[in-house]
Design a protein around this nucleic acid. Sequence first.
DNA 1: AACAGGATCCTCT
DNA 2: GAGGATCCTGTTA
Length: 211
Amino acid sequence: MPGSAERRSVLRGPVEDVAPRLLGSLLRHGSVVVRLTEVEAYGGADDPGSHAYRGRTPRNASMFADAGRLYCYLSYGVHTCANLVVGDEAHPGAVLLRGGEVVEGLDIARTRRPGVRDVDLARGPGRLCRALGLGLEHDGRTVLGDDGDPRWTPTISPRSTSVQLRGPRVGLSKAPDRAWRFWLAAEPTVSTYRRSPRAAPPGADDAPPPC
DNA sequence: AACAGGATCCTCT
DNA sequence: GAGGATCCTGTTA
């Protein structure tokens, strides 16, 4: 059973290196446990797609906290999305939890999302929070407590079947081509890719304008 | 005080 | 695959 210091050390380093390490790891809240199958990396001043790009604000303050805390925010005024804060004080960064498989507490997760197929319970960042029962009240909370809740457990031993893939992040108009989304191949709990309607189409820079 | 822009989700075709 | 709901947030005036 790894202690909090060992688990924190897994979260140290460049966010794009840490993010794929989270694939297959477990996040528990109460009696519901999700195995992460899809994540996205978000950096600091060097990442135009990140909430931390323009520095600290009341909303994103948790992104500048120690590794091992949650950054929860409200998306479209409605949906809570959760990140695991990584890196260190000098290098803000966070990993958005985009999708996962409910491996414990299925009965409770189904209650929270009635009429939904099991594979869809935590497929998508807002849905994942809903299934786990995470809200804004969890913003800034640590997941490293030995008996804490919520609690994150790193991947113990990667399986050969867990092939990792990467590609552009979902729904961003800024930095739409940075391949900082990571997911496990052949997992039905990975959400579908959607490019932002506002993002410039690929190759727009060197293509002539349409008539 | 007003505005533009969402790290989404759901419901249709 | 397309479009609308919905309301918070940061920025600008």
